[in-house]
């Protein structure tokens, strides 16, 4: 770099190029450091879950599987997993059932107050759950739904319902309404138009929306934390309580639970990424 610097016009140009190149490498280097730390955060949990003892050394003293069994029994993980799956699938199904028709109406009609309605659907996604979670929990407790599975499902529906609408509205907009008109002209009834014309066209969008809702619901902590009771905790809330009450149980059992949570999330993530671009996972909120 310094040898080129004094070489006149040509030198100045290549100096600039090397500077840009080195900037590029600085950026890549910073990204690599981020990735290494992320890997470390995840690997440390996995390593700890298999550790017999681990104190003051680079790696655990020995390896064992016993903490998985202990974690599974002590935290009653089978029950928690069932609750997690029930909540997640209920959230997916109900949000699609409620959200898709609304998205259809919003995509096909312009009406007075539509902007206001869109704003009302945007807010639950933009506003962090902890800000409206406490009044929502208060309301659900008043309705005697606090601590119940129904209450947890309702709380877990608050972000997904608007989310499905926001994902599906542009998706339906790009389906040509003349296709529906053509089907009607050929004598199709309304339900036939929906089932045999629209539904097949909607499948890719519905699949993407369903997977995005699924992955968000598994990780949704705040609302479940505020609403759930002893029998209605999802995995992420159980993990939080386990970390919080650490000291009662061995740290490895907590890590084993964290690994089980991580596996659940990663399975959903791998499936999701087959159908959805990574930028889509944050880009819908705009």
């Amino acid at each position: 770099m310094s040898t080129l610097q004094g070489a006149g016009v040509h030198g100045a140009a290549s100096w600039r190029i090397t500077r840009i190149l080195s900037l590029r490498w600085i950026v890549w280097g910073a990204a690599a450091i981020f990735f290494l730390n992320l890997l470390g955060v995840i690997a440390v949990v996995i390593a700890n879950s298999f550790a017999t003892h681990w104190f003051g050394s680079w790696l655990p003293a020995g390896w064992t599987l016993k903490y998985y069994a202990q974690s599974w029994q002590n935290y009653q993980l089978s029950g928690i997993l069932v609750v997690t799956l029930q909540v997640a699938f209920a959230a997916v199904i109900v949000s699609l059932l409620i959200g898709t028709p609304a998205a259809y109406a919003l995509a096909r009609r312009n009406f007075p107050g539509k902007r206001l309605m869109m704003l009302a659907f945007l807010l639950p996604i933009m506003v962090p759950p902890i800000t409206y979670g406490i009044p929502l929990a208060t309301l659900l407790y008043k309705l005697h739904l606090g601590g119940t599975l129904t209450g947890v499902v309702i709380a877990n529906l608050v972000p997904p319902v608007p989310f499905v609408i926001l994902v599906m509205t542009p998706f339906i907009e790009q389906i040509d309404p003349r296709i529906e008109a053509a089907a009607r002209m050929c004598g199709a009834k309304t339900w036939q138009v929906f089932l045999r014309v629209l539904a097949p066209l909607l499948v890719p969008g519905l699949l993407a929306a369903a997977l995005l809702v699924l992955i968000q619901t598994v990780a949704l902590f705040e609302l479940t934390f505020l609403v759930s009771g002893p029998g209605s905790q999802t995995l992420v809330v159980a993990l939080y309580y386990a970390v919080f009450a650490s000291g009662i149980r061995p740290a490895q059992a907590i890590s084993a639970m964290a690994v089980i949570y991580m596996l659940t999330t990663l399975v959903v993530l791998v499936v999701t990424l087959r159908y959805v671009r990574p930028t889509q996972m944050v880009g819908t909120v705009r």
């Binding site: 955060v41 995840i42 440390v44 949990v45 992955i215 598994v218 990780a219 949704l220 902590f221 992420v236 993990l239 939080y240 970390v243 907590i254 890590s255 964290a258 949570y261 991580m262 999330t265 990663l266 959903v268 993530l269 999701t272 996972m281 944050v282």
Partner: peptide, 11 residues
């Protein structure tokens, strides 16, 4: 993002 804050905090 998909692992969520609780797991990242635990790690």
């Amino acid at each position: 993002i998909s692992l969520g804050t609780v797991l990242v905090a635990d790690g």
